[in-house]
């Protein structure tokens, strides 16, 4: 069945000791991703999206400590593995990563092909034994695989592209090349951290369509980090909304966009230019993870909060099907 979860993040909490005090950066994060599914992770800057990505890649911030939770990936709790093992067996192999700024991922002094081959040398192809020697024949196989992947992401003249340098490509092309490299390792899950914010709208839309096609063609699941519900609408099957380190709502993209249940989700969607001729924002800013507001972390910016919201932390409750929300006002209403 396709319904079984590929990734289950359950009740994940993480804190970091800083000079100013303990920062509880993730607080009861809870979502899942099925095989081949595209899930959006949405929230304003500072909500902890990139921290979730780092934890999934086994790259805990310095001084960080997991306070609670599990991360089940293909049935194994990543948090029980040693970081070294996550790095060796999972990161770059079954979990691939696409960063925000593709340029910084390349070394300007080497050709794109040399760098792509280096990645494959390190991770190996899935059908190769872990200790495969990097012989001429293996290199040739890798090169052939890369050319095949560059074709899949619509890079013209893939063999020629391998011989060129990063600056000879546009931002959109570099992002495609990165996607091709990551996909060559045939991951089960692709983590994309705001991969299109640095790109033009035309290029952004091309990349969104490309990711959608690739998810279908290669059966890879995608976790798309974004702050734009337009991107969610165009790309994602389901979405998980974060506020100040907490999961506040999860559900199908359609349900969440058309019937947002959490006041934060509602306000975030209202910022989208499709919905209003005037300019809509959310006054105030995401609270700091050091001494965050008690109760619901959104209550200081919430228009419908009551005293109870400052007291009690709302937990995720199921509304309908897979649509879940953490909001006391919602509980009171139903």
């Amino acid at each position: 069945m396709t319904d079984t979860a590929l990734l289950e993040v359950r009740d994940l909490s993480l804190s970091v000791k800083t000079d100013a005090g303990v920062a509880r950066i993730l607080d009861h994060i809870d979502f899942s991703i099925r095989r081949g599914e595209i899930v959006g992770l949405v929230g304003e800057s500072g909500c902890g999206k990139s921290t979730v990505v780092r934890v999934l890649l086994g790259l805990l911030p310095k001084g960080a400590q997991i306070d609670s939770g599990r991360i089940l990936f293909k049935g194994v709790d990543l948090l029980t593995l040693r970081p070294k093992d996550v790095a060796r067996r999972i990161r770059g192999r079954s979990i691939g990563f696409i960063p925000q700024d593709p340029y910084q991922s390349f070394n300007p002094t080497f050709t794109v092909g040399k760098q792509m081959l280096e990645v494959l040398r390190w991770s190996g192809l899935p059908d190769e034994a872990p200790d495969t020697r990097w012989t001429r024949a293996v290199q040739a196989r890798h090169r052939a695989k890369l050319i095949e992947m560059l074709e899949a992401v619509n890079i013209a003249d893939p063999a020629g592209a391998l011989e060129r340098y990063p600056h000879q490509f546009s931002g959109g092309q570099r992002q495609r090349i990165l996607i091709a490299t990551v996909l060559a390792c045939q991951p089960d899950l692709l983590l994309a951290d705001e991969p299109t914010t640095a790109l033009d709208v035309t290029t952004q839309m091309q990349i969104l369509h490309l990711l959608r096609d690739l998810a279908l063609d290669f059966g890879v699941a995608v976790m798309m980090v974004t702050h734009d519900f337009g991107v969610v609408a165009q790309l994602c099957d389901r979405v998980s909304v974060m506020y100040a380190g907490q999961t506040v709502e999860t559900g199908t993209a359609h349900a969440v966009i058309h019937q947002p249940a959490h006041p934060y989700t509602e306000r975030l969607i209202a910022c989208h230019p499709d919905l209003s001729e005037t300019i809509v924002g959310i006054p105030g800013q995401v609270s700091s993870p050091i001494n965050p507001p008690m109760g619901c972390r959104f209550h200081p910016r919430c228009l419908i909060a009551t005293d109870a919201c400052a007291d009690q932390r709302p937990v995720l409750r199921t509304l309908e099907g897979a649509h879940r929300v953490a909001c006391l006002m919602r509980e009171a209403a139903s």
Partner: peptide, 23 residues
């Protein structure tokens, strides 16, 4: 038209937009 059509809208529509390709 292509620029306007490329802005990610809240409603997914795969049909009406004629995407421009490449850079």
């Amino acid at each position: 038209k292509a620029l306007i059509g490329s802005a990610p809208k809240l409603v997914r529509d795969d049909t009406s937009v004629e995407l421009i390709q490449g850079d």
